[in-house]
Simulated scan of single mutants.
Amino acid sequence: MSTPIPLTRHQGLEALELRAPDGAAATLLLHGAHLLSWTPAGAGEQLYLSPSSAYATGQAVRGGVPVIFPQFAGRGTGLRHGFARTKPWQLVSAEVGSDDAMAVLRLQDDDATRLVWPHRFEAELCVRVAGRSLEIELACENRGEESFDFTAALHTYLGLGSLLDASVRGFSGLHYWDSIKNSEQRQRVDLLLPEPPLDRIYHQVEQDLTLTEEPVGRPGRRVTIRQQGFADAVIWNPGAEACAQLPDMPDSDWQRMLCIEAAAIDRPIRLEPGESWAGMQSLVLE
């Protein structure tokens, strides 16, 4: 037997507070289908959310998990990072089950989206929390009469005590595009010690990634990150200089986050009329 989850408000915007029977919880805005918070059962907050972020119609929230669709960054002629993260999404369902809590939101084309991306589509975002796991699935269906291409990402901001204590494993042998150096590179060692500014798009990511924090004198932390349907993974941290230029992020907060994003960038997704695609990112606090 499932129990419906009522709508509430967060920073003046409609939101859903997902809480599983075991205590796992997440906060999801209808604005942008933006996941703001994830607290696994028996643990603390895992995502970074900027205290300076704006919560307003037409503006993106800094932190959490923004939905990037239908364009990643400036790779196209449309809006940078697309329009999905600033549009109101519709609530399809939200309920607490016997061992989890889940919500599904939907975005469809309208007059405003067709001005910047002339295609008929339906996108859905599904968020599920249970125990120490979080699952986020993004799906898209071509509802028009012509094929279209798109790129997408789940722009996950993972919170850190200190970037100096963090490392990521799982990229060994993979090629990546370094957006700082504007060149193609190869990851030759398994261990990645983030040294900002960092902006890389890793290709053909099939293995699990592991974010580890090993602070001196405090308990460590390990998060396993898996993805399906997304061929790429983005690692991003703005560093001190670029962070100081961001109006919605404190100057020193680059030290408190690392983005590890499931993405479809290098090879855009093509959908024929009536076709669908889905991609998922799952995170498990070990």
Rank of each mutant, 00 (worst) to 15 (best):
S2H: 14
T3D: 09
R9K: 12
H10I: 05
G12L: 04
E14L: 11
L16H: 04
L16M: 10
P21H: 05
L30F: 12
L30T: 12
L30K: 12
G32H: 09
G32D: 04
W38R: 10
A41S: 14
G44C: 09
Q46Y: 00
Y48K: 08
S50L: 08
P51Y: 12
A54R: 14
A54F: 02
A60G: 14
A60P: 03
G63A: 11
G64R: 09
I68V: 15
Q71S: 08
G74H: 04
G74A: 10
G74N: 11
R75K: 12
R75A: 08
R80G: 02
H81Q: 10
G82F: 01
A84M: 07
A94D: 06
A94C: 07
E95L: 05
E95I: 01
D99H: 08
L107F: 05
D109S: 14
D110A: 07
L115S: 08
H119M: 05
R120M: 00
E122S: 10
A123P: 03
L125W: 03
C126K: 15
A130K: 08
L134F: 05
C140Y: 00
R143T: 10
E145F: 02
F148R: 03
T151Q: 11
A152T: 15
A153W: 01
H155L: 13
G159K: 04
G159Y: 01
L160H: 02
L164K: 11
L164G: 09
G170W: 01
F171Y: 10
S172L: 00
G173Y: 08
H175W: 03
K181I: 03
N182W: 00
N182I: 00
E184F: 13
Q187D: 05
V189M: 06
L193I: 15
D199V: 09
I201G: 02
Y202D: 05
Q204W: 09
D208C: 02
D208A: 15
L209A: 02
L211N: 06
E214C: 13
P215L: 09
R218N: 14
R218S: 15
R221P: 01
F230A: 08
F230N: 03
F230I: 06
V234A: 11
A242Q: 15
A244H: 12
Q255M: 13
M257H: 13
A262T: 10
A262F: 05
A263W: 04
A264D: 07
I265V: 15
I265L: 07
D266R: 15
R270M: 13
E272S: 14
P273S: 12
S276H: 09
G279T: 07
G279Q: 06
Q281P: 00
L283P: 02
L285V: 04
E286M: 03
E286G: 11
